[in-house]
Amino acid sequence: MNKSKRKLTDSELQLAESLRRIWLAKKGELGLNQEKAGAAMGITQGAVGHYLNGRIALNTEAIIKFARLLNVEPSDIDPKQVVKLGRRASPGAPTTHTLQGVSDVPGNYIPIPQNRTTVPLISSVQAGGWAEVIDNFQPGDAEEWRETTAKVGPNAFALRIEGDSMTSPTGVSIPHGSIVIVDPDAEYTNGSIVVAKLVDVQEATIKKLVIDGPNKYLKPLNPSYAPIPINGDCRIVGVAKKVEIDL
């Protein structure tokens, strides 16, 4: 059963509105659009739009990135950021801002050098037909939107694992409830963890791809489950690039 998309709290929506007001006031002056903003901040154009329109909650790192981009203080977006950034002044020195992963240089806000992107969390049924719906996919079609540091292409998505077929007692394990980030544009090879769609099954499944000469199998990581022989009755939807677990 799909989870409903998490609604932002009133305070999160107020932050988004504060950011949106500053964006509208500054984007013309700075020659910005969402595509340029995403490239400058290391996130997708879609993620920029989701932050501005209150679909994704702003966190400290995102606020710092937008503040640098728009040439404002983080506190202009969120007054609480003055406290979160550890603002301090020393005798004879200008005010500096410190944060783990941020350089301690007056007036500069440099986020942790870690690219993030935002992908939709979809159902296994949606995943089965992903190639057909990518171009028409709307923000409300996803259970939620998730930030990830996985290196993926623009058509990536997230899938929640159901059941224990990919739970392994040793080595790599993808337990029930974990989130897998999938890239439809990545190339698969023998041993890749893939999302696959069998022609006679509505839902997509995630398994390890085994190529043994002319034979191909979808192999569960749980040894209690048998491999599934495949041939022309299977389409590889994408390759799993990262597993994320919510505690």
Results as ranks from 00 to 15, higher is better:
203 E>N: 10
115 N>D: 13
10 D>I: 13
198 L>V: 04
131 A>W: 12
235 R>A: 12
82 V>A: 15
128 G>H: 01
142 A>T: 00
57 A>P: 01
75 S>W: 13
22 I>M: 10
104 D>C: 08
227 P>M: 03
215 N>V: 11
122 I>D: 03
57 A>R: 00
64 I>P: 12
95 T>L: 15
43 I>K: 04
219 K>H: 14
106 P>W: 05
171 G>L: 00
247 L>D: 09
136 N>F: 11
204 A>N: 01
18 S>T: 06
180 V>H: 03
139 P>V: 02
160 R>I: 04
159 L>V: 07
75 S>G: 13
2 N>M: 14
13 L>W: 08
60 T>Q: 10
169 P>K: 05
244 E>D: 02
131 A>G: 13
164 D>W: 04
56 I>V: 11
114 Q>L: 10
34 Q>F: 05
209 L>T: 03
24 L>S: 14
214 P>R: 09
197 K>N: 08
57 A>N: 02
233 D>K: 04
74 P>S: 02
194 V>P: 07
113 P>I: 05
92 G>I: 07
50 H>S: 11
64 I>S: 09
158 A>I: 00
224 S>L: 14
242 K>S: 06
125 V>Q: 10
89 A>G: 11
23 W>G: 09
98 T>D: 13
93 A>E: 15
3 K>N: 15
93 A>N: 15
169 P>H: 07
113 P>Y: 01
78 D>P: 00
195 V>K: 07
137 F>S: 03
56 I>M: 11
166 M>Q: 01
6 R>H: 13
193 I>T: 04
247 L>W: 12
58 L>K: 00
18 S>G: 07
38 G>R: 05
28 G>Q: 12
171 G>S: 06
40 A>P: 08
35 E>Q: 13
158 A>K: 05
219 K>T: 14
242 K>Y: 04
15 L>F: 00
229 P>K: 03
224 S>R: 15
28 G>K: 14
138 Q>E: 12
61 E>M: 07
92 G>M: 01
16 A>H: 07
130 W>N: 09
170 T>F: 12
245 I>Y: 04
208 K>H: 04
164 D>S: 06
57 A>V: 00
229 P>I: 02
205 T>W: 01
119 V>E: 01
155 N>F: 10
118 T>F: 10
150 A>L: 02
217 Y>L: 08
245 I>K: 10
69 L>A: 07
233 D>S: 08
180 V>I: 09
29 E>Y: 11
148 T>E: 04
105 V>N: 06
1 M>K: 13
103 S>Q: 15
60 T>G: 11
213 G>Q: 04
151 K>Q: 13
210 V>N: 09
58 L>W: 02
4 S>V: 14
115 N>G: 10
197 K>Y: 02
76 D>T: 01
15 L>P: 09
153 G>R: 08
240 A>K: 10
66 F>T: 02
37 A>V: 03
110 I>W: 11
32 L>Y: 08
63 I>W: 03
196 A>D: 06
107 G>A: 07
188 Y>M: 09
88 R>K: 14
240 A>F: 00
194 V>F: 03
26 K>Y: 09
173 S>G: 06
163 G>F: 05
118 T>G: 12
52 L>C: 05
103 S>A: 15
232 G>M: 08
161 I>A: 06
213 G>A: 08
240 A>R: 02
217 Y>M: 01
146 R>V: 13
111 P>C: 02
233 D>Y: 03
203 E>D: 10
187 E>M: 12
11 S>Q: 12
109 Y>N: 06
123 S>N: 09
237 V>N: 02
210 V>H: 13
187 E>A: 14
77 I>N: 04
